[in-house]
Simulated scan of single mutants.
Amino acid sequence: MAGRKRTPDHLKLVAGTAQPCRMNPDAPKALADLPVAPDWLSTRATEIFDGLVAIASQMGVASASDTAMLAMAASRLEEVEICTALIEDGGRTFVSKVAYDEEGRVKSQQIKGHPVVAQRSEAMRHAQSLLVEFGLSPAARSKVSANVPDEQNPFAALG
């Protein structure tokens, strides 16, 4: 299907752009429970997952139905951290081939980009696209208007 992805109905409601003619009454409802980190996530990815759930739940977009997507995002963010540590330790490039002259001095060398740089770039791109799905980027967040419950809004009594 070409073109822009459809916006889920619950995000239309949160953003204030819902129109009955553009809503899908037969759309499946998301589970009301908060997501729980799956067992396959590492300890660090579970910490990231819990942080994402906390942010998404405050925004009103966290659901147990989204566990797999949040787990993928957490796993990719952990991968970004791992790749970044490898780049910091080993550098962005490495010497692949070295040729020496008769006296043992370096005659030529071939410097290549480290493969982990490309892996980190791909992990960042994928993580960014997953985070946008939950409105966890400035541009995506600007399209959503969150309603703060009265008990959390210190100015609710004034209105």
Rank of each mutant, 00 (worst) to 15 (best):
R141A: 08
G90I: 11
P28K: 03
P115H: 12
E88S: 06
M72S: 08
S57V: 12
E78D: 15
G60W: 00
A123H: 04
E103N: 12
N24V: 15
L130K: 01
L41W: 10
D150L: 07
R44E: 14
L136H: 02
S129D: 15
Y100F: 15
K112T: 13
S145T: 15
V117Q: 05
Q110E: 15
L13R: 07
A68K: 06
R125C: 02
A74F: 02
T84Q: 05
V132W: 00
M23D: 13
E78A: 08
A54K: 10
Q119P: 00
A2E: 12
A118I: 13
S121K: 08
P38V: 13
K5L: 06
V14S: 03
S121Y: 05
P8Q: 02
G16V: 15
A118T: 15
W40Q: 10
P138F: 00
A146H: 09
I87F: 02
P35S: 03
F49I: 12
A85F: 09
D26F: 10
D89E: 13
V98L: 11
S145G: 08
C21H: 09
S42N: 10
F134M: 05
M59H: 08
R125P: 00
M72W: 12
T43Y: 10
Q58Y: 09
V132A: 09
T46N: 05
D33R: 00
K12H: 04
A2M: 08
S145K: 02
S65G: 09
F94P: 15
V61P: 00
R76D: 14
L86I: 12
G16Y: 09
R120N: 04
A74D: 09
G60S: 07
A62I: 05
C21I: 14
P8H: 01
H114E: 12
P138I: 10
A127H: 04
G104W: 06
D39I: 14
A139E: 13
T46H: 03
T43H: 06
L31E: 04
S145L: 04
A73I: 13
P115A: 10
D50N: 15
R76F: 11
T84D: 04
A54V: 11
M1H: 05
L11K: 00
A146T: 13
D66V: 03
L70W: 01
A140C: 05
D89R: 02
S75R: 02
D66S: 04
M1F: 04
L13Q: 09
A118Y: 08
Y100N: 08
